[in-house]
Simulated scan of single mutants.
Amino acid sequence: MGKLSLVLGAVLGGLATVFAQSISASTYAPIPTIAVGPPVNNATGWRVESFGHGAYMVTDNQYNGIFLVSDKGVIVVDAPPTLGHRLLHAIGNTTRTPITHLVYSHAHADHIGAASLIGASPQPKVTRIAHRLTKEILADLKDPGRPLPDVIFDDTYTLRVGNQTLQLSYKGLNHQPGNIFIYAPLQRVLMVVDIIFPGWAPFAYINQAEFVPGVLAAHDEILAFPFRHFVGGHLTRSGDRADVVRGKAYLDDLKANCADAIALSARDGNSLSAGPVLAAVDRADPGNAWAAFKTYLDLVTTYCANVTTEKWLGKLGAVDVWAFENAYAMVESLRIEWNVLGPFGVQPGV
């Protein structure tokens, strides 16, 4: 081994040690009771929750999907890779009825990346159903783990298999194009993925939302359903109407706090005033427009994150974990989608 390799090895080893120490030293607020769900079976790694009348949620307490058992076949919604083969085991331990249909909630691999396992030989072939936009995304990606759907729709689609019914509908862009609402009317079970996380704050950047206004609108669209049980695709438990109301209140509050931060930055004489901040950046990094924008955005985002966290800590799980990232996503959405531009908006005429 050459001297350079030894040096690089020592440097990388040192960085790994520092990184490990920083992880072990990193602590977040305790998880509140509202975020805690039933444990998974240690032997199997999954848990099945019954909603009655043949409707079930299966979860590993990180990801979840649903399945409906009819007298003609099983309908499965989503196939998360973290469950993988365990999803088939969970269904097989619940019923001997074969899987006949697989519904894709949307195209993201973390929710349907194990789709190719369902309907693979020697199982019976399954019919795959998704929104047209989901098929278009998957056709571009050409991922063998996510086979193209056989049936697509634009607005609504009613799937009937024996004595079970699922109503599928598309309300427009929110988390991702093609992300659908999945409703079982008999059991009053609604599944909408990556919008609400029962008992928890959203994942980073409002769960990587492609259109934040659509995510906020989706909360009202969800509440328009007469559901009793809610499945959000992630984490420790199923939810109810109170979880949706709580999730909406969190995002509404985040939006209001971020709008306040932007408004303050457009005024003189406070700690968020943009003028002195931008002048200081220009002195330190003259002509570097990106440095100016980053400093400004970090300032208002940090304010919004801190105000929101102070109110919501202990009311939802992990509010502090993605506080900055979620505030950043909201600040940027306010600026570029809601036209709340603060000091970068249209200025008064001279």
Rank of each mutant, 00 (worst) to 15 (best):
T44F: 04
T59Y: 09
P81T: 02
A289F: 15
V346L: 15
Q176W: 12
K294Q: 13
A263Q: 05
S24L: 09
T308A: 00
V151A: 05
Q164N: 06
Y205N: 10
L166C: 05
I99R: 04
I66D: 06
G45D: 02
G13I: 14
H219E: 02
P276I: 07
S121Q: 05
W338Q: 02
I129D: 02
S169W: 07
D155E: 12
H111I: 07
T309R: 15
D155G: 10
L299T: 14
V245G: 03
S5A: 15
V103L: 12
Y56K: 02
I66L: 13
Q176C: 08
N270M: 04
D60M: 11
A79N: 08
M1E: 04
F153A: 04
G317I: 11
V277Q: 00
S26R: 15
N179M: 02
D282W: 13
L102K: 00
Y104I: 01
A224M: 01
D155A: 14
H219S: 04
P348Q: 13
L316Y: 03
R335T: 02
Y157H: 06
I75M: 05
A224S: 10
T17G: 13
V321A: 09
N326P: 08
L316Q: 03
P122I: 06
Q123T: 01
F197P: 08
S121M: 08
Y104W: 02
N207L: 04
G65E: 04
N270T: 01
K3S: 09
A263Y: 03
E221P: 03
P198M: 05
H89Q: 07
D285Y: 13
P124C: 09
I152W: 02
G14N: 14
L15Y: 09
G247M: 11
A139T: 10
F67R: 11
E136W: 14
G275Q: 14
T97R: 05
E221S: 10
G214M: 07
D253R: 11
V346C: 07
P177Q: 09
E332R: 03
F19G: 03
V11Y: 11
T82H: 07
D143A: 12
H111T: 04
A249Y: 12
A10W: 14
I152Q: 10
I222P: 02
D78H: 00
D220K: 12
P276Y: 06
Q187V: 10
A79Y: 00
A184T: 00
V231N: 14
D298T: 00
I75R: 05
A259S: 11
A120Y: 04
G113S: 07
Q167M: 07
G65Q: 06
P32F: 15
N42W: 01
G233Y: 08
L159T: 01
Q167R: 08
L297R: 04
I34R: 12
L12H: 07
A43M: 05
P343H: 08
R47E: 00
D155R: 15
L87F: 08
S70T: 12
L341G: 01
F344D: 01
I196Y: 06
P185W: 09
Y56Q: 04
E310K: 15
P226I: 13
L186H: 05
L8T: 03
S271I: 06
T309Q: 11
W338K: 06
Q347Y: 15
D282N: 15
F225K: 05
N93A: 10
A29S: 09
S333I: 00
T27I: 01
K171P: 09
N174Y: 11
L102I: 00
V69I: 06
D282L: 14
L278W: 09
G275D: 15
